[in-house]
Simulated assay, not measured.
Amino acid sequence: MISRKAKYALRAMIALTRAQERGAMMSIAEVAAAERIPKKFLEQILLDLKRQGLVASRRGKAGGYLLLKQPDSITFGEILRTIEGPIAPLPCLSRTAYRRCEDCVDESECEIRMVFSRVAEATRAVLDATTLAGAISIEIAGTSSLDHGK
């Protein structure tokens, strides 16, 4: 399960994607209101995304937040890693923060690791292939098969 912070980050990035399509920027207040995200929490999320080079802010009356990269090059995986850290159900499966499980005798024989390795690979494949632009196009096209568990 993803955290509320991660879900808010994804929603904020989708809102900024929609704004970019209109040639606009969005203020924190606008994103917070549109996506029903607490403003103070959103400020921290946008700061994390800004530090990672995903968004930029501009001051002034016509200022706000905008994406620094094209929506078709920002993946859900990149956003989640920025907010949550590694995408792995077990520390021994992390690509960026590998750690041997304390109670593991032999990783090559660990049935739990074998099953969750498949889960991790499938999850990464979806998250790293799904861009903000792709998510918006799914929404525009209607409900996807994922929405109905098919």
Rank of each mutant, 00 (worst) to 15 (best):
R81V: 12
F41W: 03
R51I: 13
I45A: 03
R81L: 12
S137W: 10
Q20H: 11
T143S: 12
D48I: 06
T17R: 02
L67C: 10
I87H: 02
C92V: 13
A19K: 01
G85R: 05
R124E: 13
C92H: 08
R81C: 12
R95G: 14
L146W: 10
V126P: 01
T130Q: 10
I2A: 07
E78A: 09
E107L: 14
V119G: 06
R113A: 15
K40V: 12
L132S: 05
K39N: 14
S137F: 06
R22Q: 15
A133W: 03
E30F: 02
A125T: 08
E109C: 10
P38S: 00
D128T: 09
G134L: 10
K61N: 08
Y98G: 03
D48G: 06
A6M: 06
A135S: 09
E43Y: 09
L10A: 04
T96H: 04
Y65K: 07
E43H: 13
R95I: 13
R36P: 00
A141H: 09
R118F: 13
T123L: 07
T96L: 13
M26D: 00
V105Q: 05
A24H: 08
G23W: 02
A24M: 15
Q20C: 08
A120S: 11
H148C: 11
A141I: 03
A125G: 04
S3Q: 13
A56E: 13
D103V: 06
A32N: 00
I83K: 05
R100M: 10
T96E: 15
A19I: 01
Q70W: 12
V105A: 05
V31R: 00
E30C: 02
M114Y: 14
Q52W: 09
I83T: 07
A33D: 05
T123N: 01
K7N: 14
K5G: 06
I37Y: 00
I14E: 03
E78R: 15
L47W: 08
Q70D: 11
I37N: 00
P86G: 09
V119F: 10
G134H: 06
R58V: 12
L66D: 00
P89T: 06
E107P: 03
L66F: 04
L93D: 01
A56P: 08
R113L: 15
V105L: 06
T75G: 03
T143V: 11
V55R: 03
L66H: 04
L93C: 01
R81G: 08
T96F: 12
T143D: 09
D128S: 12
Y8M: 02
E111G: 04
S73K: 15
Q70P: 05
A15N: 05
M25R: 14
P91F: 06
A32R: 01
Q52S: 12
Y8V: 01
A88D: 11
A62P: 08
E102G: 05
D103C: 06
A6T: 13
A19V: 01
A133M: 07
E43N: 15
T131R: 02
A133C: 01
P86W: 03
T17M: 00
L42T: 05
F116T: 09
A135Y: 07
